[in-house]
């Protein structure tokens, strides 16, 4: 195969790569920002935990499950009006980020919840015996003790976001997914399709590598 189309217009490949990375990182940032508090709430309101609140726990769980059970491609359609309301358009990478966060934040919250469930009852009890407040326990026990789990959750979410962002780009425009579809497959330029695919794989590999390294450094168990 010759890479004549890629060689002729390398800038569109670079541009799409930047857009993909931008979508993944920004939506990852917001997913973490929403997912950690949501995960903390899910765990501490569960029965027998720090702040058992049955109704709140069930309500949050239900909302999270709704978002997680809607297939992402359908979720994109449902977030179109939200994008219009929030940023005035349903087109472009920023619009894509809204649907990406809607899909990834609840997913990540569940990962946070399960990482925090690994923090032993005994450690929490020991902190309570020392006179820790609930907020102390969240900041000084739950989060630091589950940090490796949270970071590997962030990695898993980032990898999922790469694949979601390719889909989001198709609908909203932008990124390597759109490039592969529009400029590659539909334009019969197989070299662009191939390069876009390889770049998506490369992004995933890099994210996974960074995540694994951080987890290894954090994990003192």
């Amino acid at each position: 195969m010759h890479f004549e189309n890629v060689v002729a217009h390398p800038e569109i490949v670079v541009q799409a790569t930047i857009e993909s990375v931008y979508m993944v990182l920004l939506s990852l940032f917001f997913s973490v920002l929403i997912g950690i508090p949501l995960g903390v709430l899910l765990i501490i309101t569960s029965p027998g935990h720090l702040w058992p609140k049955r109704w709140l726990n069930e309500a949050l769980g239900a909302v999270v499950n709704v978002f997680r059970s809607v297939p992402y491609i359908v979720l994109i359609l449902w977030t179109i009006p939200v994008s219009r309301a929030l940023i005035g358009t349903s087109y472009g990478t920023n619009a894509a980020i809204i649907s990406l966060v809607a899909g990834a934040a609840p997913f990540f919250a569940r990962l946070v919840e399960s990482a925090m469930r690994e923090v032993g009852r005994g450690v929490i009890e020991a902190a309570q015996a020392m006179g820790a407040r609930t907020v102390d326990i969240i900041w000084k026990v739950l989060i630091p003790e589950s940090l490796p789990g949270i970071v590997s959750g962030i990695t898993v979410t980032a990898v999922a976001l790469v694949s979601y962002s390719a889909m989001a780009g198709l609908v909203a425009g932008g990124g390597l997914g759109a490039l592969a579809w529009n400029e590659g497959y539909n334009s019969f330029k197989n070299d662009i399709l191939l390069v876009a695919t390889v770049l998506l794989i490369a992004i995933v590999q890099v994210l996974q590598w960074i995540g694994d390294r951080i987890v290894r450094r954090l994990d003192r168990r």
């Binding site: 005994g122 000084k140 003790e145 003192r220």
Partner: peptide, 28 residues
């Protein structure tokens, strides 16, 4: 909370924070 600070407790399974060093555990 203040009262509990004057009542130390030790446990069968130690219940240390594994993400902290010995020094940081004692400082907790």
């Amino acid at each position: 909370r203040k009262k509990r600070m004057k009542i130390g407790m030790i446990f069968q399974h130690f219940n240390l924070l594994w993400s902290r060093t010995v020094f940081e555990n004692v400082r907790f």
